[in-house]
């Protein structure tokens, strides 16, 4: 039985290299993009391909990486979370709000012990995630709209907390994790690596992870299998908000200040990292591995453009074009895969 089964499987699998590559397009294309970009910048600038610069790139993508972990869960379920950057921002501001600031900072804040400040901030982002979750599952607002509203709500809370001021101090644990380093390796890189690894383990080896893929793959079938689809969707929205919150707290420490609109670019960057890495916008395909490749593509692109001598205004356009190319590949990879499956 077993041997005939493997023979069968082999025969089915061995369908020539071309179809295999086509079906794996989703994973291969981002990787090729990464290699191509790295080679290009290494060739174009002697300062790019150095160990120091690799460290720079890693540090630069860390905050995006932390936020993108949760977003990967959401996109795998074929939903979207547009409130990630705002939630990161409000959580970063909250943790500063609960910390004693220097006297010249003109914020009517509530100083609390560091641990309490951190816990309250995490509760805050979890709560905002829960509101997203309830809006999506109980009321039935599409995630695109619900999180768009949340984006504004979180920005509003941020504004009320800082009132146009800038806060600098955060609990010492956060300061260390955000801007300290150990043995030459920045803590923030380590935190990002641990969270990415954790996300990967959850998605690959746990029951919940399987449910995420199945709900994303075919929501109707998941429901007919008796899965609690709403619970799973709700959970990913909360996970996304908490990851954003952690990213926001460390980001504030990393930048050295907490203020309004500090994280605005992270919305696009996080979505881009997930999608460029090859996770399907239609759900069910991809994972943290893809997100990591996407993060590097983005990191190399952002960093590399600074190493070559081109008009800095042109850089913005170039980034946009490369993202567009990656999105086109994402959509085509889906079609090619369907083609290869026939």
């Amino acid at each position: 039985m077993a041997s005939s089964e493997t023979a069968f499987a082999e025969a089915h699998r061995a369908r020539g290299l071309a179809p295999f590559l086509r079906s794996q397009m989703r994973n291969i294309a981002p990787f090729l993009t990464l290699i191509f970009l790295s080679a290009f910048f290494a060739f174009a600038s002697p300062s790019f391909a150095t160990l120091d610069n690799l460290g720079n790139i890693l540090t630069q993508v860390s905050v995006t990486g932390i936020i993108a972990v949760g977003l990967t869960f959401v996109i795998l379920c074929a939903e979207i979370d547009l409130s990630i950057a705002s939630i990161a921002n409000v959580t970063g501001i909250a943790v500063a709000y609960f910390t004693l600031q220097e006297s010249y900072v003109n914020i009517a804040n509530i100083p609390l012990p560091g641990a309490v400040a951190i816990i309250l901030s995490i509760l805050l982002c979890a709560l905002l995630g829960l509101v997203n979750a309830l809006g999506l599952t109980v009321i039935g607002i599409p995630s695109f709209i619900m999180t768009l509203a949340m984006m504004q709500i979180a920005a509003g809370i941020s504004a009320l907390l800082v009132r146009g001021q800038i806060a600098y101090k955060v609990p010492s644990l956060i300061t260390t994790l955000g801007s300290g380093s150990i043995g030459g390796i920045p803590w923030i890189v380590i935190v990002a690596a641990i969270m990415l690894l954790g996300g990967h383990l959850v998605l690959t080896y746990t029951r919940f992870g399987r449910y995420v893929y199945m709900v994303g793959g075919n929501r109707e079938a998941a429901e007919y299998s008796g899965l609690n689809v709403k619970l799973i969707l709700g959970a990913v929205m909360v996970i996304s908000a908490v990851c954003s919150g952690i990213g926001g707290m460390l980001g504030v420490a990393h930048f050295g200040s907490a203020q309004q609109n500090e994280f605005d670019t992270y919305l696009l960057d996080s979505i881009a990292a997930v999608v460029v890495g090859g996770t399907s916008l239609f759900g069910g395909r991809g994972g943290i591995g893809n997100t990591i490749v996407g993060l590097f593509v983005l990191g190399v692109l952002n960093n590399g453009l600074d190493h070559v001598n081109i008009d800095s205004f042109l850089k913005i356009l170039i980034r946009g074009l490369i993202l567009l190319a990656a999105l086109i590949i994402n959509v085509y990879a889906q079609r090619l895969r369907e083609k290869a499956a026939e």
Partner: peptide
Amino acid sequence: RDMLFHQEPVYKNISISILD
């Protein structure tokens, strides 16, 4: 179409309702 996950292997389709 409603009941099954076409892009997933057979065993995941069979086990989905009994994973817990």
